[in-house]
């Protein structure tokens, strides 16, 4: 059975200027023990999606459609107390801002114990013991439990948050850029710790990052998001050998570590993410896609199966060889850049 099944999920932020259609028609599944990497440009809705799975959206965020089935039960329709019981115990989050996620007026230990005790009827002593255990797993001395957050380094705080997330052996861990604020060495260490633990406890993981090279190491599956929609979903093995979607091809260019070509300069995708506020027509990637056609301007491509466990949202999966070839060339993206400049002139 699937641990998590997200079906046609729509999420909006209600703002004064109108509704921001931040996530649209997102569907994916996650098996027990599977880890999926979620990538995409800043603002494409990764954190929003992650928070929604924990029902942690801010007040102005609404789930306007779809289902999130966790262990067969729809989280969207659960009441507050049911959700509360799921958090930490079943689904734990290592948030993007872990640095500030600890309350400055309590010791780290108090905060971890508080979490443990709000879901179990452990005594304080037992909870402390459990906290010491998870601290040992994540490589923190147990005397650190008595430290206040301001007495710890960023890496320690990050570890403490991870320890907290692991304290009740959750079935699903959502890690939202858990190591962005750390230096590369610490980052590597922590990442390998997270995955090791995840493998040991057989929990599933949703791993959000900007660095797709990390995903190739950590996750079995990759989901590429753009403008609130899934563009491509694939096993990472397949993806890193041969991505399909033009956006994925563009992303691949921007990350040298997974590239087999050594052209020196990185090619980035020109332009900016779409505005999700007004009426949205056609493919989300149309403004920046080098291969767009009239159809792309009008018609939103559905997510289609193109291979085993491999889906993309593009009208032209059959042209992939051509796309791959062209996308390696600088001129292709230069053309997009020129086109964007021309279009903005036309608007003005």
């Amino acid at each position: 059975m699937n641990l998590l099944e997200v079906k046609n999920l729509d999420i909006d932020y209600v703002t004064k200027e109108g509704n921001l259609k931040v996530v649209r028609d997102v569907s994916f599944t996650l098996k027990q023990g599977e880890s999926v990497g979620l990538v995409g440009e800043s603002g494409c809705g990764k954190t929003t999606l992650a928070k929604t799975i924990m029902r942690l959206l801010p007040d102005n965020g609404v789930i306007s459609g779809g289902e999130i089935n966790y262990k067969g039960e729809n989280i969207v329709t659960k009441n507050k107390e049911e959700i509360r019981k799921l958090r930490l115990n079943e689904i734990a989050m290592i948030s993007q801002s872990a640095m500030n996620s600890l309350n400055p007026v309590y010791t780290v230990g108090e905060q971890i114990i508080e979490g443990i005790r709000s879901h179990t009827n452990m005594s304080k002593k037992e909870a402390i013991k459990r906290a010491e255990e998870v601290f040992a797993i994540i490589g923190l001395e147990k005397k650190r439990l008595k430290s206040y957050p301001h007495q710890m380094s960023g890496g320690m705080k990050q570890r403490a948050i991870i320890a907290m997330a692991l304290s009740l052996n959750p079935s699903l861990i959502i890690a939202d850029e858990p190591t962005t604020a750390l230096d590369v060495v610490v980052q590597d260490k922590i990442l390998s710790q997270i995955t090791e633990i995840q493998k040991q406890t057989k929990s599933s993981m949703i791993f959000i990052t900007h660095d797709i090279s990390i995903i190739s190491e950590l996750c079995e599956t990759i989901i590429v998001m753009y403008g609130g929609k899934i563009m491509e979903k694939s096993s990472s093995k397949v993806f890193f050998k041969a991505p399909y979607h033009p956006y994925s091809l563009g992303l691949q260019n921007a990350f040298p570590s997974i590239l087999d070509i050594d052209k020196g300069d990185l090619i980035s995708i020109p332009g900016a993410p779409p505005n999700l506020m007004g009426e949205l027509k056609g493919c989300r990637f149309k403004e920046r896609c080098p291969f767009r056609t009239d159809k792309c301007m009008e018609e939103l491509p559905e997510l289609k199966e193109i291979g085993e466990d491999h889906q993309i949202a593009c009208h032209y999966p059959e042209r992939v060889d051509e796309f791959r070839e062209e996308s390696k060339k600088k001129e292709t993206w230069q053309m997009v850049s020129d086109r964007i400049i021309n279009e903005s002139k036309g608007d003005a």
Partner: peptide
Amino acid sequence: DYIEMARAKGLR
């Protein structure tokens, strides 16, 4: 962020 964290921890 620590308030969100408190929520994520499933506190009442």
